[in-house]
Structures are given as structure tokens and as C-alpha cells.
């Protein structure tokens, strides 16, 4: 499939900020399931920092906007050719050992309910089957409901609540997989999701679980599937914060308003 992305994030400051610094993970890496045809990231009045590929294989670039600044627009436009790899991340150049993804973070800290969920897979011997089972269990345990949680909601809190969005599904699956001894990580990206008629955010997130012999395999409990050719992968991390497409800080008196528009479309072939 050929997918186009048009992603605009606009920051407005009630009182001008003295300066803005951002770290972007906004450029997809090419791998077996995705080939970047064209891709540009622009930041209004921004100065680009050096770009590099980190140990996890993600492209990272810093940006700075000298102040005073009252409005900054980050625009991402690009085209990616995707193919269905049944969720398996193939041909992705990375160096970070999978074992690093066994450590928990604030957002994925285990509790007894998460341990009980992970424990349901105890009898499953094959790691791949176990990952599928956990993904299904998470999908059953958390009902998709925007607004029920915030970006700061932890896996334990989301599971207790039983409702949430893709970030919560991913966090709960990651926490459960790590409890079951499987390295797991958070993936941020885009989803072309108008095809199935359901309402989804085009800026999406899911989880990857490391299966020995197969490598990293994506699971999207929010959609009860593995990522396929509708998905564009941007980058990964231990949790949502660590994998965030944009991390930034504005130096100034505060008062930031944020507006995000994301459109992912399929190009007719």
C-alpha cells in the first residue's frame, strides 16, 4: 500500500516563549514492511540540529526555535510504501539488545492485577502464542474509550479502570509481557484506519514483543490485530514518553495551547 501522511502540530503561547527546544522521532526508518518514498519535517522558524539514527534504529533530530516565539508549527509530510509482514519487524537495523526492554518504567510499573493478567499465560510454552494471548487479554480488559484516561495514566491505573486509548492498551500489554519474561516496547506511528469504517486516531501507538527466533513482533490490542500494511512505524521506547514522536520544552512564562491534525491516506494505484 502507498500511504501519505500529513501531520501538523501547532503550539501557541499565550505569552511568547523565550525559546523552544524539541527532540523529534518523526522520520520512519526503512525496513521490510515500509519504504520511505519521500518525507519532510519542517518547523516554522526552526533551526535543525544534527540528525542521527539511535541504537534502536530510529531517526532522531533536534530542533530549536529562537524566541521570542508565540506560535510554532511542526509539519510532517511524506509518502511511505508499506507491505504486510504479519507484524514481524524485519530488516530493521538496530543494535539495542532486546534484554534492555525488560526493565519497567513509571508508566509500566507492575502491580498485582497486571501480574494476575500476565499469570493467565503461564501454561503457554511458545512465546509467540503467549504474546498473542496477552494481546487478546489486554483487548478484553480495556475498552476503547477516548477521554477516560490522560497521557499520564499508568498501565496499572488503566487496567483498574478498564477503559482507555491505544496508549493504555500498549502500556498494559508491555507491562504484562515483561512480567511474563518477554522483552516488550512501545511503538509510535501512524495508522490508515478509515478503511474499516471505525473511528480511530491516525496518530497511533502499539506494542512490540520480542520473540526468540523471530525478533520483534508488533501487537495492536486496540485493534485486536498485528500491524500490517496500514501501519507506519516511527519509533520505539520503553513507554510512551520514551517513544514520543515529539519531546519538547519551551522556556518562558508558560501557557501553551496545542493543536494536532493528522491525516493518513492511501494513494490509489
Amino acid at each position: 500500500m502507498i500511504l501519505t501522511v500529513d501531520h501538523v502540530t501547532c503550539y501557541r503561547y499565550v505569552r511568547p516563549a523565550r525559546a523552544l527546544v524539541q527532540s523529534h522521532r518523526l522520520m520512519p526508518s526503512s525496513c521490510a514492511g515500509q519504504r520511505v518514498v519521500d518525507w519532510t519535517v519542517t518547523v516554522s522558524d526552526g533551526i535543525a540540529g544534527g540528525a542521527f539514527r539511535d541504537g534502536a534504529g530510529d531517526w532522531i533530530q533536534g530542533w530549536t526555535v529562537p524566541g521570542p516565539v508565540s506560535e510554532v508549527t511542526v509539519s510532517v509530510k511524506g509518502t511511505v510504501e508499506t507491505s504486510d509482514q504479519a507484524g514481524v519487524l524485519r530488516g530493521h537495523r538496530e543494535l539495542t539488545p532486546a534484554e534492555c526492554y525488560l526493565q519497567s518504567t513509571t508508566a509500566t510499573k507492575p502491580d498485582s492485577a497486571l501480574a494476575a493478567l500476565a499469570g493467565q499465560g503461564q501454561a503457554v510454552a511458545e512465546p509467540l502464542d503467549l504474546a498473542h494471548l496477552l494481546s487478546d487479554l489486554v483487548a478484553d480488559a480495556i475498552q476503547y474509550q477516548p477521554g477516560a484516561t490522560t497521557p499520564a495514566t499508568t498501565a496499572a491505573e488503566a487496567l483498574a479502570l478498564g477503559r482507555g486509548v491505544c496508549q493504555d492498551h500498549a502500556h498494559v500489554l508491555i507491562a504484562a509481557a515483561r512480567l511474563a519474561g518477554l522483552p516488550a516496547r512501545y511503538v509510535s506511528g501512524y495508522l490508515f484506519a478509515t478503511a474499516d469504517g471505525r473511528d480511530h486516531d491516525a496518530a497511533h501507538a502499539w506494542a512490540e514483543v520480542h520473540v526468540r527466533g523471530l525478533g520483534w513482533v508488533g501487537f495492536d490490542p486496540a485493534n485486536r490485530c498485528c500491524p500490517d500494511d496500514r501501519y507506519i512505524r516511527l519509533g520505539s521506547g520503553l513507554d510512551a514518553q520514551d517513544a514520543a514522536p515529539i519531546r519538547g520544552i519551551a522556556r518562558g512564562p508558560g501557557g501553551e495551547r496545542l493543536e494536532v491534525q493528522v491525516a493518513v491516506q492511501a494513494v490509489q494505484q
Binding site: Q22, S23, F52, I60
Partner: peptide, 8 residues
């Protein structure tokens, strides 16, 4: 932003 400058 220091770490991005460092790593690049």
C-alpha cells in the same frame, strides 16, 4: 536538547 547534540 543536550543529548541530541551529543549524539550527533
Amino acid at each position: 536538547g543536550l543529548m541530541d547534540v551529543y549524539r550527533s
